[in-house]
Write a protein that binds this DNA or RNA. Structure first.
Length: 887
RNA sequence: GGGCGGGUAGCUCAGUUGGGAGAGCAUCGGCCUUACAAGCCGAGGGUCACAGGUUCAAGUCCUGUUCCGCCUACCA
């Protein structure tokens, strides 16, 4: 095999395209849908918004899923990775509305039907963008099964769930205070409101008594809402207001007489202890209003403008109105004072507009009963959240769950399957449009114009994508799914709701594990956002550094419980790693002439045995790490194995053999080991860096088909035989000696091109035997001219020394040695040993330690002490000699 | 207000039942050694935020302090 086939540096671009096409064409991502298929493993993708473009969060999320899926396939599992997108009601509607606005049209001009058509058109044209981007990332989803939350099948599931919950009294409709976005013109769930601390003012306003004598001063941050006040409340225990509650005040600017009521809710210590009550614009006031049967006066309309109830302020924007009201109060001398005040304000999570708490008729899911089962499922371990720390957050939220407002006043989404009879106002909730009213037999039924929250359909994703409500083979085989991989930011939005729905409708949890990964942030740890301008586009990164480098970076930094700080510089670092693998393979292919499927028995050299043993360790470690979702550990093990063990030691050590200097027999043996290690390493690496491994795999003689379809090393029957503790310990002595010599070379500034003469002294026969036996290897890797081994011969003149285990190494430097330098070097080494020795001594002199510490720990310290002592004495001895010579 | 996480080398971070302070990058020195200069060989660098406590032994467990970040919440 010629190395001409591989370029000197790895060029990812065509490689990635070529192999992705190949995998798709060969249908290697497809799950087997047959009862006989064993070891099922399934993941449903967190569906990205159909309007979305791939961002760092997607990249991390899907890289981790892909690593798991590819790994499980190598372990022989039948893997289903279910892909798809969600219809992102508000976001998508916004996008299409913007597009229409460009043509000078509003959605109302177009009409609902045509508008929805336009959205479908848009989705046809642009909806696959994010899917294609996932493919660039290498995602091995079963694309033939791609789903969309608005598909007919999934829509049917939505209707089925809605109707069932309604029949079970778990869905109801009512007039409540909800979060209203005046720009998106829709209700939002509590979760969809993002709170932010703002600087504002606390306005103190006097409401005069109706008899003209004095009044009550209230404090508010939102003076404009006073126009809708229907009471003032004080705490019944508040002595300042005793007797006041029988009186009435006159609402300024409006001149409405309103009562002063008593309610425990009022905090006496805040403001003036008197609270204005606006039941139509504040959730608490709404509750108080209910308790006291107060009127609800809506002064802010759904468009954010003041209603006729606001009197002369009608049609004014709510924020302008605030200023106008303040001015008007000043004129009437009713504004007592204005204090600066910080408070948090809710914003729409889609458009950042300030939310208006507004009275409105909406549909709700009664969540308490659903949440109970979802809590239990995690408590009893049916679903396990990893890292475990998130279970607390999950419980916290689930235990305090509020009813979920699911209706949205937009057009793009699942229209609520509820019809109202125009005759008798009967409400009919059904899977299909009813022909006649069951109450009055009338046939003018009008469907509710609202649509459902997108998360309502997402909550069904783990089973709706598999064909529910039909009892499909897919559901039988792959529900519950094995794991859900997701960011913590949608733990409540999505995970909690899937848990509730899955348990309720499938009678089982939707996933056995939930792996919660971190957020990807910028270099400085800030959240990436378009407005801060610190967004790194994953596709740019892929273009510049290649997908594999990018994926490996993500995996390497995906430590549990910590955010991923991303910078291109880091990706560049891992590109070097990809290139290293590439070049190692290139080197191997200069020598590998054919497939070496079997390892020869008994004739392996030390490094051969050693690298196989290390390979086995790496395989075990990778599998353990991945099974515990410790992606960074797995990546770290591979990085170290490939670079520092395989490349730095093994390949360097076997070069003479490969060049034929050790005879044909040895060469053949080593080639078979080299083939085996490269073969297995490619498999271990494949889940992380699929493209480059596939490319190299196809250059490897005898490797058939795709690396995707190969067998994980631990599942091949002979790998445990690789383990060889003796080879590892022997190797550690030899590498120690080599490093010792190199150290001297480096520290003494001796040119690498100068071959050295070294003698090794040891009183241990075994050590001398090992050094003698592997003399060639030491000479080669340490660049020696000669190496002698002695029991305790005479110390060479003018030598630099190093001690490894029980061996003393003398690097002969007669005539060239710089005594001062060597004295310094040894002194430094000795002082290092001395501090370590002091630590050990302190322990060994401590009787409590000797008595109370476990025996193995004490023995370990003793052993350490002995070896440190020996080493120190030897070095000291040499230092003394050098000093004599130098003096 | 409640809750959670973090503070370890110049930077980014590992450190899983308490018993050797580690990696990558950066820095410094030496090498164009026929896979790779996107490389090779070597080196320096830390009071593990601070203060107590438990223990023979603490980066690791407990308490407090402080700084940073996040989530959550109806105090107008």
């Amino acid at each position: 095999m010629s190395s001409d086939l591989l370029d000197k540096a790895y060029e990812p671009h065509d490689v990635e395209k070529r192999w992705y096409d190949f995998w798709e064409k060969e249908r290697l991502f497809a799950a087997v849908e047959s009862e006989n298929a064993k070891n099922r493993y399934s993941i449903v993708i967190p569906p990205p918004n159909v309007t979305g473009v791939l961002h760092m969060g997607h990249a991390l999320n899907n890289t981790l899923q892909d690593i798991l899926c590819r790994y499980r396939r190598l372990r022989g599992d039948n893997v289903l990775w279910m892909p798809g997108t969600d219809h992102a009601g508000i976001a998508t509607q916004n996008v299409v509305e913007k597009k229409l606005a460009g043509e000078g049209l509003s959605r109302h001009q177009v009409g609902r039907e045509k508008f929805v058509e336009a959205v479908w058109e848009w989705r046809k044209e642009y909806g696959s963008a994010i899917i294609n981007q996932l493919k660039r990332l290498g995602a091995s989803c079963d694309w033939d099964r791609e789903r969309f939350t608005m598909d007919e099948g999934l829509s049917r599931a939505v209707r089925k769930v809605f109707v069932t919950l309604y029949q079970e009294n778990l869905i109801y409709r009512g007039n409540y205070i909800i979060n209203w976005c005046p720009r998106c013109h829709t209700a939002l769930a509590d979760l969809e409101v993002e709170h932010e601390v703002h600087d504002g003012y606390l306005y103190h306003i006097r409401y005069p008594f109706n008899d003209g004598n004095g009044g009550v001063v209230i404090a508010t941050t939102r003076p404009e809402t006073m126009l809708g006040d229907t009471a003032v409340a004080v705490n019944p225990d508040d002595e300042r207001y005793h007797g006041v509650s029988s009186r009435k005040v006159v609402l300024p600017l409006i001149n409405r007489e309103i009562p002063v009521i008593q309610d425990k809710y009022v905090d006496m210590s805040f403001g003036t202890g008197a609270l204005k009550i606006t039941p139509a614009h504040d959730p608490n006031d709404f509750e108080i209003g209910n308790r006291h049967h107060l009127d609800r006066v809506k002064v802010i309309g759904d468009d954010g403008l003041m209603t006729p109830e606001a009197g002369k302020f009608e049609k004014m924007d709510r924020f302008q109105c605030r200023e106008a009201v303040v001015e008007a109060l000043k004129k009437e001398d009713l504004l007592e004072k204005i204090d600066p005040y910080q408070h948090s304000i809710g914003h729409c999570y889609r458009c950042r507009t300030i939310i208006e708490p507004n009275l409105s008729k909406q549909w709700f899911v009664k969540t308490k009963p659903l949440a109970e089962k979802a809590i239990q499922a995690v408590q009893n371990g049916n679903t396990q959240i990893v890292p475990e720390i998130w279970t607390k957050t999950y419980f916290e939220w689930m235990n305090n769950i509020k009813d979920w407002c699911i209706s949205r006043q937009i057009w793009w989404g699942h229209q609520i399957p509820a019809w109202t009879c125009e005759n008798c106002s009967e409400v009919v909730v059904a899977m299909d449009p009813p022909d006649t009213c069951p109450a009055c037999q009338g046939n003018t039924l009008k469907q509710d114009t609202d649509v459902l929250d997108t998360w309502f359909s997402s909550a069904l994703w783990p089973f709706s994508t598999m064909g529910w409500p039909d009892e499909t083979q897919l559901l039988k085989m792959f529900y519950p799914t094995s794991v859900l991989v997701t960011g913590f930011d949608i733990l409540f939005f999505w995970v909690a709701r899937m848990m509730m729905m899955g348990l309720h409708f499938m009678g089982d949890v939707p996933f056995k594990d939930v792996y919660v990964h971190a957020l990807v942030r910028d270099e400085e740890g800030k959240k990436m956002s378009k407005s801060t301008g610190n967004v790194i586009d994953p596709l740019n990164v892929i273009d510049t550094y290649g997908t594999d480098a990018f994926r490996f970076t993500l995996a390497a930094f995906a430590a549990q419980g910590r955010d991923v700080k991303m910078s291109e510089k880091r990706v560049e670092g891992y590109r070097h790693f990809i290139n290293k693998i590439w070049n190692a393979a290139r080197f191997a292919f200069m020598h590998i002439d054919k497939a070496y499927n079997d390892l020869p028995d008994g004739s392996l050299s030390l490094v051969d045995r050693w690298i196989l043993s290390r390979l086995h360790r790496a395989a075990v470690s990778v599998s353990e790490s991945l099974e515990g979702y410790r992606f960074n550990d797995a990546a770290g093990v591979l990085y170290n194995f490939v670079w520092h063990e395989f490349c730095d030691w093994y390949l360097e050590a076997v070069k003479p053999t490969l060049y034929g200097k050790k005879g044909a027999e040895r060469q053949k043996t080593t080639l078979s080991v080299l083939w085996r290690v490269l073969h297995d390493t490619l498999i271990l690496l494949h889940p992380f860096i699929p493209f480059v491994t596939e490319e190299i795999w196809h250059q490897l003689p005898g490797a058939k088909g795709s690396v995707m379809k190969s067998t994980f090393p631990l599942d091949a029957d002979d790998t445990s035989l690789y383990q060889d503790l003796q080879a590892e310990s022997t190797m550690s002595l030899i590498t120690g000696i080599i490093t010792g010599i190199r150290n001297i070379r480096g520290e003494m500034s001796i040119s690498p091109s100068l071959s050295l003469t070294v003698s090794v002294h040891s009183q241990q026969t075994s050590t001398r035997e090992i050094v003698t036996h592997y003399k060639d290897m030491i000479m080669n890797l340490a660049r020696l001219e000669s190496l002698s081994v002695e029991n305790s011969g005479r110390r060479p003149k003018g030598a630099a020394t190093s001690v490894v285990e029980d061996a003393t190494i003398f690097v002969h430097l007669e005539g060239v040695i710089d005594f001062t330098q060597e004295i310094q070097r040894l002194g430094k080494e000795i002082s290092k040993l001395t501090t370590e020795l002091n630590m050990a001594t302190k322990k060994l002199r401590n009787e409590d330690f000797l008595e109370k510490a476990p025996k193995d720990v004490v023995d370990k310290v003793k052993e350490k002490y002995d070896s440190l002592m020996e080493k120190q004495q030897k070095l000291q001895n040499n230092l003394d000699k050098i000093k004599e010579l130098g003096a």
